[in-house]
């Protein structure tokens, strides 16, 4: 072991002591339930979200590689004009999905508010994002022609 590795090992062991002290308290109420939530958190991006978004993107990219003539419109590549609004809209949905999908029954009881406006609002934001992206694409095509 190098000096750096020894230092790192000592630091890691010390951090495990702190983490263990907290984990005992974290897991106290329901070890299996909380443990499962924590473990799922560690892999949800890498093994669930990533295959989903990267898979969709890979299909699109592959399709455009096979058919290069589809990849441009008016001499401008449009792929990222689809990717960017889709990513932002998808992320907004990911974060606000409980209320957009009206899953929490406690929301109305606690706040007196309805979750009903959130789905149309998300759709409207999504439309604006794609609209702005389309507008920049058209502007780029227009500049290219000039």
């Amino acid at each position: 072991m190098t000096r750096r590795e020894s230092l790192q090992t000592i630091a890691l062991l010390a951090s495990f002591v702190v983490a263990g002290y907290a984990a005992v308290r974290l897991l106290a109420g329901n070890p299996i339930g909380i443990g499962a939530w924590f473990a799922s958190s560690a892999i949800i991006h890498d093994l669930v979200l990533f295959p989903l978004y990267a898979g969709l993107d890979a299909v699109l990219v592959l399709l455009l590689r096979r058919h290069p003539t589809w990849a441009t419109v008016g001499g401008v590549a449009w792929l990222n004009h689809l990717r960017v609004p889709a990513a932002v809209s998808g992320l907004l949905l990911l974060v606000w999905s409980p209320l957009i999908l009206r899953l929490p029954t406690a929301f109305h009881a606690a706040s007196g508010l309805s979750a009903q406006p959130l789905l149309p609002r998300w759709l409207a934001v999504t439309a604006v994002l794609f609209g702005l992206s389309l507008a920049t694409l058209l502007a780029r095509i227009a500049t290219k022609r000039r």
């Binding site: 909380i34 939530w37 409980p98 929490p104």
Partner: peptide, 8 residues
């Protein structure tokens, strides 16, 4: 979001 769908 008041989504208490967890066992804790």
């Amino acid at each position: 979001q008041y989504y208490y769908a967890w066992p804790f």
